[in-house]
Nucleic acid binder design. Structure first.
Lengths: 213, 213
DNA sequence: TGTACATCAGTGAACGCGCGTTCACTGATGTAC
DNA sequence: TGTACATCAGTGAACGCGCGTTCACTGATGTAC
């Protein structure tokens, strides 16, 4: 998990040395692990510190509460989402357009798999109205959504998509589609669909909706 | 909120009289209200009973735990989702196809608005692996997804959609798109998109993806 | 119509656990000279 | 290179609140005759 290079601050705002930074990272990793294993509803600060073999008091040196830690994890995830834009910024107009769409879906699925537990909480809290998490979500998707919007505008300009669709809404819908389908994978498999059906179908839906082809 | 007609059981499995049924309903309504106001993470059994002016002991006469109450609410929601199928089963092949798509989106948005707090929890728990909630979610979407799958199959048969897309996956993707976009409404509005942009764009995306037109 | 009894429904009050949170302290690392 | 001191990092142990949960009980409703 890559980390930003900016200086990291403790809960009271003081600058942390490298030793402290390691502890902070271990706390975040433990939070991420417990989130994936048992979900937000079971997440306890005591368990997080138990996991890294330290005391609950340590936790408070780095985060004012458990939300602050989750938010930090969400920001790490944001950082990992940015590279996905490279699949979009080239456009999907050539013969290999569909192939590029498939690559994008693959990478997005990988990204979501890596961060699913954290992203689920982020989205839940955003939808429940928490401002900090709402902003984190907006910021995370910003680049991808902008790139997709541009694709839609291009297709509209070329007359392949109706002018009545809204580029930003379309882009957001595409993201929603992918994010939300991943958890359905087991269910889709249970219905006898092959493993690639999800990937292929998503790629085609994206390709058609973003390029109009 | 319509209620099923089957006999309602208490937490210990005994049949409840009409007086008890009223209490049960009030507990569920309070649960729903608190869920909408503050979210799952803040939901307390004590608060639910406080809300209806009764004792925590009463709660346990009806539900073994708070999950049982949420599950009951999710099942009420399922019941309200069924009528949405009427917009789909007629097909969208005529001249008024897009109009029908718009009507469907409107009704779906209304449905989701009415139950959003509960459905969010249902989906979270389903995605976190809770079997009961996973089944509730499958069951809820079953009819709508089947109807949509049929539309895709028809379009494939007529050569308007590629045979490579998977009907069930496509249908699930459409549901995902709508459900997930609603919470973005405020954000979309903040970006200066008109209120109907969301509705219209979703309708077009659905129309295109399900009918191939 | 009235009375006795059975069943249904609701609850006050308490118990106890577990968690968040803090404080005063110890130990580790860095720095000045 | 060594020593004294300052700062950084970590924690044991306790406090207390709030919540889930239960029990023994009261009150309400229904029913038999």
């Amino acid at each position: 998990m890559p980390r930003t290079k900016k200086t990291i601050l403790g809960a009271d705002g003081r600058v942390l040395g490298s030793r402290a930074e390691t502890t902070r990272t271990r706390l975040l990793d433990a939070t991420s692990k417990l989130l994936a294993e048992a979900g937000v509803l079971e997440l306890r600060i005591v368990d997080i510190t138990r996991e890294v073999g330290s005391s609950p008091a340590t936790f408070y040196q780095y985060f004012i509460d458990v939300d602050a830690a989750i938010l930090a994890l969400a920001e790490q995830a944001t950082h990992d989402e940015a590279p996905l834009v490279s699949h979009l910024s080239t456009g999907w107009d050539g013969d290999d357009g569909l192939l590029r769409a498939e690559e994008f879906v693959d990478d997005y699925m990988r990204y979501w798999d890596d961060h699913s537990a954290v992203l689920r909480v982020r989205n839940l809290k955003a939808e429940e109205g928490n401002v900090a998490f709402r902003e984190a979500r907006s910021k995370a998707n910003l680049l991808v959504i902008q790139a997709m919007s541009t694709m839609v505008e291009q297709a509209q300009h070329d007359g392949r998509l109706p002018s009545t669709i809204h580029p930003f809404v379309t882009a957001t819908a595409m993201i929603a589609m992918i994010e939300r389908l991943l958890p359905y994978r087991t269910e889709i498999a249970r219905r006898g669909a092959p493993a690639e059906a999800l990937r292929d179908t998503l790629a085609i839906l994206l390709y058609r909706s973003l390029t109009g082809r």
